[in-house]
């Protein structure tokens, strides 16, 4: 009796072990497949938060036209996307800034030959509260405000109220672009409030009468009525230009930047097809409807 029970027990244990083992093997195999990700019908895109909407719109249209393809898009910031591309965990990297030399060196070390494609242009709008009488500034004045040289609106010909300076977090591609082209590579004032997202910049500018902020043109136009978009003069003598897709494309509006996609030269044909789609007439139509400016 007793020994029979023992045997039964052992047998049950044996089955259990067998089941667990086979499960483990299955999981391992599954992981292996996931890691290789050489499934040529799937594309992963990662990078700039600015471009997430645009890339999602592209991928939806691309998948609608090619039903057997799968495209997944994640944000995280330009730097995160570039790191992912270098580590081989994404096929396409979207970036709102050019790759830094450090990153290019790393790519070279890894034997990667990266290709840079400009897929759209993005204007950066400088916004203030609708109650603010200021409606145009020179690039130099905006720079001085952000550097902390100007501390009250009186210094640009408005009531003598303190300026609330709003910038994006230092991890944002927009932060670096603005620093390079408007602050002319100087540091932001220590008093600048660094906002975690574009929406919080718009929220604060619409709530606080004497705040100034910068956001992507598409977001600024969406928030029309809540915030006032400033016209920008290249210098004191030049004429003020309001940001719009025409003025960004013609180069008249100077605070604008290209948006990039980066891929490895050895990328699969699927990836290359996707890039071609982004540059096609249909892809550029999506750029326009997402609030960005088309290339060429």
């Amino acid at each position: 009796m007793f020994s029979k029970a023992r045997i039964l027990l052992v047998r049950i244990n044996f089955y259990k072990i067998a089941v667990v083992c086979s499960l483990a093997v299955a999981v391992l195999l599954g992981c292996g497949r996931g890691n290789n990700s050489e499934n040529s019908n799937s594309i992963t895109i990662k990078g700039s938060d600015t471009m997430v909407h645009l890339a999602s719109a592209w991928s939806e249209a691309f998948m609608a036209a090619n039903s057997d393809y799968e495209v997944s898009v994640t944000g995280g910031g330009s730097g995160t996307g570039i790191a992912a591309l270098l580590n081989g965990t994404t096929d396409i990297c979207m970036a709102s800034r050019k790759m830094k030399n450090k990153e290019l060196d790393l790519a070279r070390q890894k034997g990667m030959n990266l290709k840079e494609i400009v897929v759209a242009l993005d204007g950066i709008a400088v916004i203030v509260n609708p109650a603010n009488p200021v409606s145009e500034l020179t690039v130099g004045q905006v720079g001085k405000i952000y550097k902390g040289a100007y501390e009250t609106w009186g210094q640009v010909g408005a009531p003598k109220e303190n300026i609330i300076v709003l910038a994006r977090e230092s991890s944002s591609g927009t932060y670096v672009f603005f620093q390079e082209h408007v602050l002319k590579k100087a540091d932001y004032t220590q008093k600048a409030r660094l906002m975690p997202a574009t929406s919080s910049v718009i929220q604060s500018v619409s709530a606080d009468n004497w705040a100034i902020g910068y956001v992507g043109l598409g977001y600024a136009l969406d928030a029309k009525g809540k915030v006032k978009v400033l016209s920008i003069k290249e210098n004191v003598a030049a004429k003020a230009v309001a940001p719009s897709s025409e003025s960004v494309k013609s180069g008249e509006y100077s605070i604008a930047r290209p948006l990039y996609l980066y891929i490895d030269d050895n990328a699969s044909d699927t990836v290359k097809r996707f890039i071609d789609f982004c540059l096609s007439a249909k892809g550029q139509e999506i750029v326009k409807s997402s609030g960005y400016v088309t290339v060429n």
């Binding site: 330009s78 730097g79 450090k102 977090e169 230092s170 991890s171 008093k191 409030r193 660094l194």
Partner: peptide, 19 residues
């Protein structure tokens, strides 16, 4: 005045920082 806390700094900057 506006301040920046240690936690907010880590959360905001860690995602983009070069390894």
């Amino acid at each position: 005045d506006s301040v920046r806390t240690m936690t907010a700094t880590i959360a905001a900057e860690m995602g983009e920082v070069a390894f």
